[in-house]
Design a protein around this nucleic acid. Sequence first.
DNA 1: AGACGTACCTGACCGC
DNA 2: TGCGGTCAGGTACGTC
Length: 274
Amino acid sequence: MPELPEVETVRRGLAARLAGRRITHVTVRRADLRRPLPPDMGQALTGRRLQGFARRGKYLLAHLDGGRVLIVHLGMSGRLSVDDAPSGGAHEHVVLHFDDGAVLRYEDHRRFGLMDLADAGRLEEHDLLRHMGPEPLAPDFDGPALATRLHAKDTPIKAALLDQRVIAGLGNIYVCEALFHAGLSPRRRAGSVQGRRADRLAGAIRDVLDAAIAAGGSSLRDYVQASGELGYFQHRFAVYDRADQPCPGCDCGAGVRRIVQSGRSTFYCAKRQR
DNA sequence: AGACGTACCTGACCGC
DNA sequence: TGCGGTCAGGTACGTC
């Protein structure tokens, strides 16, 4: 689910509501997510103040006073929402209570998400983060930076962009959308995306992510903003989940095509994407 | 190196 | 109404 725009939207919502608040109580109802929660997590969090929220790719990073960082990944169905009373639902796995009465709930019905603790000073060396590729919204991300990552890669560009070591934060939706806006076929060899093609793709990635963040992300099944509101970028998809429908501004007779690459659905327009 | 299948887990949906 | 099959925004592993 949650790809970079959804995690970024949640990050902003949590920062606005919880930065500076102290955690007074932690309830762990299920510790077996994709990997077990750190056994000492409740103890490590209780009494700590949340200094701020950062993001690396699809990972949310909650910085605590005392120099530790709570790392959260939402997997496919993870949801972080604040201010509501705990629902007590079957998939509410972790609940944090704050000194001003706020309640942060982590729900994840598929349990593909994870949480871990790290030292702030060595965050970049953490196993989950150290192999991650560049941030597509960083100021120095551009065509040449992307071209370097793709150089000599003998795999379809679709698969390369899903690889978090190549570029951080993209998932199935935004890869499909960015390739459409760049006019590049998902089947094209990654290594052939150089020069002006790489410029176009880097720009398309940035534009799609910016637009999705501005829309509060894409709500398909599980995703909501930290406030509980839905995102609405799903109404702007050009190709994702639009098989057999016409793509915007295109007179291709066949419409959007769905194929399967490395086991995942890919949506594209065979006329406009080469 | 990379392609591919499989696994993790639950729920929604579709056809019968 | 129920059942089986398929699919889903992610990632990690083993095997060829």
